[in-house]
Amino acid sequence: MKVGLFIPCYINQLYPQVGKATLELLEKLKVEVVYPSGQTCCGQPMANSGFENESEGACINFVNNFKDFDYIVTPSGSCAYHVKKHYNIIQQTDDVIKVRKNVYELCDFILNVLKIKNLGASFPYKVGVHKSCHGLRGLRLGSSSELVIEPYSYIEELLKEVEGIELMPLDRSDECCGFGGTFAVTEDVVSAKMGKDKIQDHLRNGVEVITATDVSCLMHLEGLITRNKQPLQVRHIAEILNSTI
């Protein structure tokens, strides 16, 4: 099995430690991982802003970089979802269809393709899970609170196996954090208010570390936490699953 690693643009540039943790984790699990050097961005920022057509070049570049892999794994639910759902704007060649089918968010890949649950990690902290919306309601990495179905959560299934971790339940289990891409800037007031409220929920429930499948949500929350000097940290889920402290 050959896996191509996709590191979203903002992780590559601003949170490289998340990329490293993802790569190390997959290598630990004996996966043959390659990081194609020509990759850039999945195209989501332009598309969500109403400029899907400007993102075509990015989509094509993505497919060219990843078409030869059995799976494409990425530490971002949002990017995986974008490729799956919105790559209908380019011609549906065999390559494009294959890439859209085989792109996986990291936890989803570990649990449902590799079928591994216990990763031998330890992380002795009180952790609050932020269920990033595109992962939750797009990729269905868990049951959303609106639906009347058997509750499940891939993320929590993996985290429960981490030694020393204490998962703290929240008052609102899956409300959006308010990042939303360019929304964070065009609707900055509501965006910040949503983030603030989200952070309060974690603080009220004794959380020390917020984790998520998406760095974008965490970057927004961390920005607020640092500005307001609050006693909280953020860690991408790959960092926790790769941790042995």
Binding site: K20, E222, L224
Partner: peptide, 17 residues
């Protein structure tokens, strides 16, 4: 206005890899 930006790391993931 309301949020700090992350501290830019020295190396991108790309360079590190």
């Amino acid at each position: 206005k309301t949020r700090d930006l992350p501290v830019g790391p020295k190396k991108s993931f790309d360079q590190w890899y």
